[in-house]
Design a protein around this nucleic acid. Structure first.
Lengths: 206, 206
DNA sequence: TTGTATCTGTTCAATATGGAACAGCTTGAG
DNA sequence: CTCAAGCTGTTCCATATTGAACAGATACAA
């Protein structure tokens, strides 16, 4: 287990195992996967697997960790693009830059994200995704006026964050047909205008 | 260059180089490809390439050779399925088994075949494909009655074989939407009934 | 011309991966 | 129950792949 991580073979092997994990989770779910399944699909020696991962659980954990790390890097790249608040972005017809970047990242890793956020996925990963969403969505909204809220803050938070995750999942499972910017704008409108108005179920007057 | 070919790494490396070749030929054509392009895309060391191939030309040659070898194996697997002649197959509503197997093989190797038989492909490979087609199509048709032909045999041969290759190319480039059996039957009808009648441009009476 | 850059083949020692075998464990059929 | 089959970790040596460096070729701009 003393492999130096800058070697091309290591990166390639890990990527192939990760791709195999993705495919197999789609087929039979994580629980039914054996290490032999993984190494057969990845076309590597079974012994090689154990050079990198203690078992299949450690594999899943590390894959999820890498995704979260990469999402953290996305966070860094868009800090300077953020305007002061929701309203400014909306009047420019632009969704929040971080959300766009998030969807772009999801599209790149579509297969893995669809599995991990899907029916056979990892509930804990959903929680971590929500944490990331919360950090970036809430810091823009809470500034406005906290006193005049008619709903406990925690429920508001749970509502918006979970709604966004729902949009993400629907997008992933329906084939990511919309562009990242389009789907980000969709989620943005639903939050900014409220679901009913954004969906056109009520007029602007109401 | 004394590698033993049963090692998993060898097979994997060759497959990755071959996949890289396929992708790059689609992008920029064979001439523009450098060895560095190939090894970058395949994600292997450049030196590894030279352990298996003298240069990119040898690579192409070997890839084509492997495809032709595999097609030869397909030939062996269907010998016993062949009926005596065209007519028997047609009256059962079945295309020639070899042609079905051929399309099934093409579908499996769609990416490479599309490139190698495409606008940036290898004309010599087309010739070899025609040889294979000829061997299996003609031995069924020629038996019937060679004397009453109104066209020199060589032109007849060139017409039918090239027509089949054209069907193959059209199928590959249009996304292989029909099943191998369907497209094989299409090619079979065009040959058995003649193109105009098969296409319904003339009635059965004519 | 001279340089600057990239590609080509080739070599080397270091090492990650290969195939194979092993005992221990679980699972399911007889 | 017993037996057979499959999976799990682990180990061994053999070897394919790696990163690096090298000289020579080609192309292209100063």
């Amino acid at each position: 287990m003393s492999l130096n991580n800058t070697d091309r073979r290591i990166r390639r092997t890990k990527r192939m195992i990760r791709d195999a994990l993705t495919e197999l989770m789609e087929d039979k779910g994580f629980d039914a996967i054996t290490v032999r399944d993984l190494t057969d699909k990845a076309d590597i020696n079974r012994g090689t697997f154990y050079l990198h991962y203690k078992d299949k659980f450690a594999l899943l954990e590390q894959c999820e960790g890498e995704v979260l790390e990469e999402l953290a890097q996305v966070q860094g790249h868009v800090k300077e693009l953020q305007l002061a608040n929701f309203y400014e972005h909306f009047h420019r017809g632009e969704p929040l830059p971080f959300i766009v970047k998030l969807f772009e990242y999801l599209k790149e890793n579509g297969a893995f994200m669809r599995v991990i956020l899907g029916p056979n996925g990892d509930p804990l990963f959903q929680v971590k995704m929500k944490d990331i969403l919360a950090e970036h969505l809430l810091k823009h909204m809470v500034k406005k006026a906290r006193t005049e809220m008619e709903v406990p803050f925690e429920y508001f938070k749970a509502y918006v964050i979970s709604a966004h995750l729902g949009v993400i999942q629907e997008w992933l499972f329906s084939g990511m047909k919309e562009s990242p910017k389009e789907i980000a704008m969709t989620a943005f409108k639903l939050t900014f205008l409220g679901p009913r108005r954004a969906a056109g179920l009520v007029s602007d007057k109401n």
